[in-house]
Nucleic acid binder design. Sequence first.
RNA 1: GGUGCCUUGGUCAAGUGGUCAAGACGUUAGCCUCUCACGCUGAAAUCAGGGGUUCGACUCCCCUAGGCACUACCA
Length: 549
Amino acid sequence: MDYDKLAELLFPNITKTPEDYEALYPERSLPEGAMVTRMAPSPTGFIHLGNLYGALADERLAHTTGGACFLRIEDTDDKREVEGAVPVLLDTLSYFGITFDEGKTKDGEIGAYGPYTQSQRAEIYQTMVKHLVRQGKAYPCFMTEEEIEEIRKAQAEAKLDPGIYGAYAKHRDLSYEEIEKRIQNGEEYVIRFRSEGDPARYFHAVDAIRGDISMPENVQDVVILKKIGLPTYHFAHVVDDHLMRTTHVVRGEEWMASVPIHVQLFDAMGWERPIFCHNTVLMKIDEETNQKRKLSKRKDPELSLEYYKKLGYFPEAVREYLMTILNSDYEEWRLANPEADYRDFDFSASKMSSSGTLFDLSKLNDVSKDVLAKKSAAQILEFMLSWAEEYHRDIFDLFSANKEKLLKIFDIDRGGEKPRKDLIFAEQIFGFMKYFFDEYFEYQDEWPAEVSAQDRKEILTRYLQGYDPADDNSAWFEKVRAITADLGYAVKPKDYKKNPEQYKGHVGHVSTVIRRAVTGKTNSPDLWTVQQIMGIDMVRSRVEKAMEQ
RNA sequence: GGUGCCUUGGUCAAGUGGUCAAGACGUUAGCCUCUCACGCUGAAAUCAGGGGUUCGACUCCCCUAGGCACUACCA
């Protein structure tokens, strides 16, 4: 067989050679140890937590080593592509703080290793495939889907490995004339790699997360170029990551099983293999089966990044959480360096986990509380405003008209040594403080059981008579104490606990009555401060309203 | 079925032959306290199972079990 002739028959229009592209995309001049990473999503319109998890790893690895991180769009599958998915992807990633040095951006494409969209790289792939054909390492295959299906069935029955390999690779050794004839007949074909792999032989590859990985060589004659003239993932990955000079391929562990194919392809092209970084899939406990399982986009709304945006999680909180599961010692580092920029953390692939990580919402919430506790009232307000603008127009209008008041509300117990940690995400925050606004006020809790209805009215009546917004915190509380004692309740809770039979209840119960009247809830931040912010009119009307109950 | 990866408390995990097996979340008992939150002091809870190697194994080897992934002209 004259492979040169075959190559010309198959790719008459390809005139470039691999060397041309080598020259066009020279090796990067980067400092020693610098990593070049990439995020390579398909534009399916769905970006999830796992994508962000990987993207953050890519970004950190590149930027802590002085390297580069780029975004490549893997759109070789025309069936899966969703219109407008790329801008959404870019927006979402930048919302969560991920930016790229190269590749697709809002303002078009940047970087010297483009195009960064695979559908625009057809000529490059075809040049490489032609090169393989010329060397006898790839060949056209005319098998129809039906034929392949039959082979698969037969293999299943005989309990053999499925796929096109060995004797099943029927078109592996077609003659030139046969190929020419079929093409002239208009038969469609794909290009398969001619595997010389031996499953008895094992190869070794480097995985920065898992260490040395060793697997049997690939025997399958995998498709490298599809009927439509675009490559499969396998070939596109090899060509792109070589030409874009990627040093570290960070991807999900579902790719590990294809490493034999990739290694074979890199070797066949005579290219150096990148270092792989196979990270774990995010899992959750299934409510029905109580078993660990992969987070699914159909069943689990919390997999979607949109879910967190909508609930109003601070992007920084999501990032902090992801960092804690990405590098096992991040949490301790953060504890020791509460104010440090996360970029100062010494991120490394070897500290990434190789076992499945369970997504833990309560941990996310805890991390979020810590993040928000460090924010200023102004920052909280700003975020709430942008969240409401997108998701809750009514709240946005309310907040826009009450900025001064909101700043005071968000400032309660903020700053200082022991800030409150009860703010988690926007929706929760709103529910937490909406009683400050009559439009959203509601009684969320019941009256304390320890206080009779009669006493309750007495407490509220006296409270209203005595209430003076000019009182300072201690003067105000002295009045509450006076009512407490008058009505036969213990002024000190400890006294009540020691001799419960001597009292009806204690000052806590009495103030809970007032708190519930004013806020609709049995717990809240310091009541005196709350009332200072509300103003006398609101306090008065709330207490009056409560007395009617 | 085959191939590969993974396996320390409920969860995330440190650990690399000798530790009373870190820490965090969660749970929980208290303290502080007008409620809540914060903070503080405690508690319960882990090396999947079985064989080796070794004076000694969470750490090394083998087997078993379980979980996960892949097994497309999808990525």
